[in-house]
């Protein structure tokens, strides 16, 4: 059944392309980051969405990615300046730590479900795991350096149910990593995409993954034989005429949203019959906004608290909010 996707708000302020958007766990603050080297924090009051804070002095180059810790207290940002920064809300968003070690641009950051680990990945082909060893002093130690990718790593994403990390990138693969009790190891390699995998997203159960690629497809993978044997159960092709730069799998509604280089936003819903546990899954395109932004759409993110509220960001420097109707 097709659904509407209505514009709710347009947040302008960034002076260059916006690369990513991330919600805090309450859904009351939205962070965006940009090639203008800043992070903006947006919040709603009675009059609507406004920019509440601008974080400017953490990075010397493009801020490529942002992520809130599960507690909502910390915000991590990743930059082309080869560092990741951690900002502390309790200190009115002071930069509390700078994580150095990558040899070139940091492309993404992600917090584990407990907030104990922060993962970063880079053009230098590595994924680093930082352990928050002292929560009061905000001390981080490098817990592992994972070198399984053969090219630029574009994104990292933690499972919502366990300490398991997915990463993807320019080598066209998605890779999984876990703690085997002794050390962090890289396990399954998910092959199928024919070009760069830009992003990966878990479903709420942590047993399925969706990935999107420069090849214009979205693939859904399922762990068929736990632990760590994965199969592609669905390929969404023919919908995206340009690269798919991001996707988001809503834990509240199960809807899958994509950000495409054709300026469009798309929302897919799973066919109920497939149920999600079979060897195959089927997704239907239920909403499209052809000109969601004036240029490439770089990011999509579902509100963690408001059903069907979606944030998007584009090369046009804008952040937009959308509401899926008829939920």
């Amino acid at each position: 059944m097709s659904r509407s996707l209505e514009p709710v708000a347009t947040l302008s302020g960034h002076t260059d392309r916006v690369w990513q958007v991330a919600w805090d766990p309450t859904g009351r603050t939205l962070a965006s980051c940009s090639a203008d080297r800043s992070v903006r924090l947006w919040a709603a009051d009675a009059a609507g969405w406004k920019c509440a804070t601008v974080l400017t002095d953490g990075h010397e180059r493009t801020v490529r990615a942002v992520a809130f810790s599960p507690s909502g207290r910390l915000l991590a940002s990743a930059s082309f300046d080869a560092t990741a920064a951690v900002w502390d809300r309790e200190q009115t968003w002071e930069c509390a730590a700078t994580l150095e070690g990558h040899e070139s641009e940091v492309k993404a950051v992600a917090w584990s479900r407990s907030g104990r680990f922060l993962a970063t990945c880079s053009r230098d082909k590595s994924v680093w795991l930082w352990e928050l060893t002292d929560e009061r002093e905000l001390d981080f130690e490098c817990a592992a350096v994972l070198m399984s990718h053969t090219q630029d790593v574009k994104r990292v994403a933690w499972s919502p149910t366990e300490d398991r990390l997915a990463s993807c990138g320019y080598d066209d693969t998605v890779r999984l990593h876990h703690d085997d009790g002794d050390d962090w190891t890289s396990g399954a390699v998910l092959k199928g995409h024919t070009s760069t995998v830009w992003a990966v997203a878990w479903d709420a159960t942590g047993r399925r993954l969706a990935s999107c690629s420069d090849d214009g497809t979205v693939r859904v993978w399922r762990e068929t034989q736990p632990p760590d044997a994965w199969t592609c159960v669905c390929t969404l092709s023919g919908h995206h005429p340009r690269p798919v730069y991001d996707l988001a799998w809503c834990p509240l509604t199960g809807l899958l949203a994509t950000a495409c280089g054709d300026d469009g936003l798309r929302v897919f819903a799973e066919e109920p019959a497939a149920g999600g546990d079979g060897d195959e899954a089927a997704f239907t395109l239920v909403a499209t906004v052809a000109r969601a932004h004036e240029q490439d759409v770089n990011a999509v993110s579902w509100s963690p608290t408001e059903r069907g509220l979606l944030a998007s960001a584009g090369d046009d420097g804008l952040v937009r909010l959308w509401q899926v109707g008829e939920l």
Binding site: F80, K154, Y170, D214
Partner: peptide, 14 residues
């Protein structure tokens, strides 16, 4: 592939 990757082109021009 490298020329099509706008992220790497953006990093290169920085």
């Amino acid at each position: 592939k490298q020329l099509a990757d706008k992220e790497r082109v953006a990093a290169a021009t920085e």
